[in-house]
Design a protein around this nucleic acid. Sequence first.
DNA 1: TCCATAGGTTCTTTTTTGGAACCTTGATAC
DNA 2: GTATCAAGGTTCCAAAAAAGAACCTATGGA
Lengths: 162, 162
Amino acid sequence: MRWEELDQQPCSVARALSVVGDRWTLLVLRDCFLGVRRFDAFEKRLGITRHVLTDRLKKLVHEGVLYKAPYQDKPRREEYRLTDKGLDLHPVLMALVSWGDHHMADDRGAPIVRIHKGCGEVMRPVMVCSECGEPVSAREVKVEPGTGWAAQATDVMPIEIG
Amino acid sequence: MRWEELDQQPCSVARALSVVGDRWTLLVLRDCFLGVRRFDAFEKRLGITRHVLTDRLKKLVHEGVLYKAPYQDKPRREEYRLTDKGLDLHPVLMALVSWGDHHMADDRGAPIVRIHKGCGEVMRPVMVCSECGEPVSAREVKVEPGTGWAAQATDVMPIEIG
DNA sequence: TCCATAGGTTCTTTTTTGGAACCTTGATAC
DNA sequence: GTATCAAGGTTCCAAAAAAGAACCTATGGA
């Protein structure tokens, strides 16, 4: 499979990664969630080349994850903001943050802490089951083909992890 | 910032992405969570080139996300399995699945469904606050520097998203 | 002897990045 | 009026990474 065919796979992970799965995209989105909106701010913070930044922002707008909103005329300037589709990526960033805090932090601890406005406490994100509310780990989830499953000769049925 | 310097950033997202943030790594891990363990199985399922697959598996072993376990002698063969550090990436994959199911599915619905063994129901993963147990969305989280924060001239303080 | 299998390595070509310079529109300084 | 600056790009070239195919090694079987 070529990278460009990813979005046609019968797999939500593959389809999601076809949008956010390349080198800089999730870092651009991290900055979006931190409130960064302008081209030169992304450039300065990320140290990304302008060429690549242009490309990633265009792609994210095209996919409906960001939208361009004018913030002045004469000369016209536009900034990039998260759409609802983009805001829905928050759990992905939170999951990465959580893993990074746990497994990649140095001895000084987490560089950034998150406070849940609802309860006012410093929080960790926890993944729970939508049905029973219990935290879910890898071994507690079984996968099965769903309605969108279209088996192809090259597909391998998912099996359970041991 | 060059891509290779990502792991030195004072940001858990950047550090996490320095391990799993390139083109094929998260797809390799998806297959690990589905029970795939052998080189040729990854190759057939992903359609990735052998060169890139070798490189990604080596990197994941080096980072402690996978480990090699022998499954036969004469000739010696080894398979790749998730370590605890690797299993902890499950929420990242779940978050991507959830977003993909919601925003990238075609009209046939999700290709794969997940069943929570604990309650037996078809589940969606939900991100909740570790302190109060309520679901958290992007707008309900405030970020602040933590103990590992080491401000540098080029750093920009996180601001709240609007 | 010939073929197959698992797990790679090597080679060449095509795409992506990195890095720097240049362009455009208007605002402001001299 | 000329010079400079800012934001948000585009263009060009070199370096790095990925795609695609062929080759290598150890063993086992027909």
